[in-house]
């Protein structure tokens, strides 16, 4: 038994990495889209997995798409959908993952330039409200400024997003401490059982 287990362990080591068995989903909102990735936790992409958008509670399907070869998906947020939603990924063989997102209310049109967060007014209003365009070299109206800021922030944030994605993936892999902990639990459990048996006699 000992030797056979050694053989088994050797085999496990030879076949290298310790991988998990489930799919995970990573998603974020960008503009009118929900973008993200579906992957097995060894990091390999889940190709052609079905991705559906559902409200936080309930089963009404709001949107649907499939992942591409890299496991990425891009889902258009239907008009009027806001608040808390779930994005559910379904891969074959009964794998399923979901993530909760909260959608901000849709960006308001230019006619009603309400700021989306408090404090934005002070920050963005002055250039837009300047009635005298000659006073400065370049003047952007509020919407343009907003778009520009969004673009720049998006650019700056992209690498962070990537790191975050990797971090999330890393976190979902079973760690060695968990694996050995699990083995310990198993032996502990059967140890208790053995003890109970010995008491009975």
């Amino acid at each position: 038994m000992k030797k056979s287990l050694i053989i088994l362990f050797l085999f496990l080591i030879i076949s290298s990495k310790v991988w998990a068995h489930k799919i995970s989903i990573f998603a974020y909102v960008e503009g009118n889209y929900i973008q993200g990735q579906v992957y097995f936790n060894d990091g390999s992409p889940a190709k052609l997995a079905k991705v559906t958008l559902l409200p936080a509670r309930g089963h009404k399907i709001l949107g649907e798409t499939k992942t591409d070869k890299e496991g990425n998906f891009k889902l258009l947020i239907p008009k009027g959908v806001e608040g808390k939603v779930r994005v559910v990924a379904l891969a074959e063989m009964g794998h399923r993952a979901e993530i909760n997102l909260s959608l901000k209310p849709e960006a308001k049109g230019p006619q009603k330039g309400e700021p989306s967060f408090p404090g934005a007014q002070d920050f963005m209003a002055p250039p837009a409200q300047t009635e005298n365009p000659a006073s400065a070299g370049v003047l952007l109206n509020k919407e343009e400024l907003k778009a520009l800021i969004h673009q720049e922030v998006e650019k700056e944030v992209a690498p962070i997003r990537e790191i975050l994605e990797q971090l999330v993936k890393q976190l979902q892999k079973p760690s060695f401490s968990e694996i050995f902990g699990g083995i310990g639990y198993i032996f502990g459990f059967f140890g208790i059982l053995a003890w109970a048996y010995s008491k009975r006699k």
Binding site: S15, A20, M93, I179, I183, I186, G191, A194, Y197, S198
Partner: peptide
């Protein structure tokens, strides 16, 4: 009671075996 250690060992082997993954097609 004599079987308990064996069951425990095999349970642990099963527990670890499921962590070894072979990527295959769209799945693993």
């Amino acid at each position: 009671s004599e079987k308990v250690p064996q069951v425990a060992l095999l349970s642990a082997a099963f527990f670890v075996a499921s962590l070894v993954h072979v990527p295959l097609g769209p799945s693993s």
